[in-house]
Simulated scan of single mutants.
Amino acid sequence: MAYVFVIASVIAADQLSKMWIVDAFRLFESREVIPGFFNLVYVVNTGAAFSILADVQSPWRHYFFLIIGCLAVIGLTVVYMKCKGDNKYYYLPVGLIVGGAIGNMIDRVRLGSVVDFLDFYLGGYHWPAFNVADSAICVGAVLFIWMNYSDSKKYIKTKEKL
């Protein structure tokens, strides 16, 4: 149940934040929040992370990203079902990743692209704009790797004691 709650929370936060941006901003509009560090900006991304494949003009690109997203959601849910016996807290990182993937897939289905709006920068360097779903995916991935690393160390210590 916690797994579904995390997924639903990420989707809700992602979609509500994107609805606000679309309603409150014009496409490509930017508003400074923290001078020299953070803006809110309304941009769209037809590609994957960091606009990978955004310049590919194939009608299949859209379906490719939807299929990859669906496979990721299914695959990660299977991983969660297998991992939850080892560590009951795997619901959090996997739920974050799955919720983020679904949030971005909703945009692709509704709009044909993903709404991005968080723009961090330092001097002339801008990190590519991203959204709540992207943040959830990244945080979830880092947590998942850390939990796997921690669990593997515990497993090795247990094996050594035997």
Rank of each mutant, 00 (worst) to 15 (best):
V22S: 02
W127H: 03
W20M: 08
D55A: 10
M81C: 10
A13V: 12
G103V: 04
T158H: 13
G75P: 09
Y125H: 13
I102C: 06
K88C: 10
I137K: 03
R31Q: 12
V94W: 01
I68T: 10
L96P: 04
Y121E: 05
S58P: 06
E29R: 02
P59S: 07
D134M: 09
R108F: 08
H62L: 13
G36H: 06
G103A: 05
L76R: 06
C83A: 15
W146N: 07
D14C: 03
Q57H: 11
Y91M: 11
G95F: 01
L27M: 11
F144E: 04
W146S: 13
F25R: 01
V73T: 14
D23F: 08
I68H: 01
P128C: 05
Y80K: 11
V6N: 02
I7D: 03
A8E: 09
L53M: 15
F28L: 07
V142N: 10
F50E: 11
F120D: 02
T158K: 14
M19W: 14
A24K: 06
P93I: 05
C138R: 04
A2C: 07
V114D: 02
K82N: 14
I145G: 09
F50K: 10
V41D: 01
I68V: 15
G36S: 09
P59C: 09
M105K: 09
G124S: 13
A12K: 05
S58F: 02
I106W: 03
A2F: 14
K161V: 11
H126E: 02
W60A: 11
K159L: 15
V132C: 07
I97C: 04
L111Y: 12
L111M: 12
Y91G: 06
V73C: 11
S113L: 08
V79N: 09
A54T: 02
A13W: 05
I21P: 02
W20N: 00
I106M: 08
S9T: 14
C138N: 14
N148E: 10
C138K: 05
